[in-house]
Nucleic acid binder design. Structure first.
Lengths: 105, 105
DNA sequence: ATAACATTTCGATAAAAGTCGAAATAATAT
DNA sequence: ATATTATTTCGACTTTTATCGAAATGTTAT
């Protein structure tokens, strides 16, 4: 993943719907979660959801697996992890910080 | 930082220029770096740079400190760290991964 | 006071992203 | 074959971002 790709991936996380999708996909594990289920949970039109999913796929943050007529969305954990490492290694020098682990509500 | 703010912050990192700024600010430490220096290094028009800086400030990723007629840009490390923690805690369950530490070029 | 410097605001324009109904595709079941 | 279900594509539209020259603002030096 090079700089432009990292940046593109962050942009993907920069939309509440897509960030919700990603967050939901974590819980779904490797089995993933059907598009339809996502749609019910997020309660948005299918075309809108499809658009965001496609965007996430192109950015390398998720992949899809088809079973019958159901499409499962699966997070690409390794790439999310890369983003985390980018922030951790390039952005956060620990001496600079005293971080409270529970700041994330 | 709540969900919407996290998402907003990721969006900020989702532009190559702004991600470059953030990356540069890390090296600058708490002293920060003058807007003018950033401009020379990035080689973009001042109005464009100013626009992106303003955006980063509003998203809580950096702050500014004035010294004479020079404005220093300083990263808000703690918020970048929060993003990293968000990805680490909410998105990356370590059992799911074997991560190569050197994947970031 | 005026000039030189650092940076922002304005304003106009161009480009990209987001939204969603309706039609199209694909898979399975009857 | 036809109907049903799951999901995507199309197309039109609205909203948001990005870009950048030029003018304005604020700061220090002369």
């Amino acid at each position: 993943m090079k700089f432009e790709e990292i940046s593109r991936a962050f942009k993907e996380l920069g939309h509440p719907i897509r960030l919700s999708i990603v967050k939901r996909l974590i819980r779904a594990g490797f089995q993933g979660i059907p598009v339809g289920t996502l749609q019910e949970e997020l309660n948005i039109p299918n075309s809108t959801l499809s658009h965001h999913i496609s965007s996430l796929v192109h950015a390398g943050l998720m992949m899809q697996r088809k079973e019958g007529r159901t499409l499962f969305c699966v997070l690409k954990y390794e790439n999310v992890k890369l983003l985390q490492l980018f922030l951790e290694k390039d952005c956060c020098v620990d001496e600079y910080l005293e971080v409270k682990e529970n700041l994330l509500e």
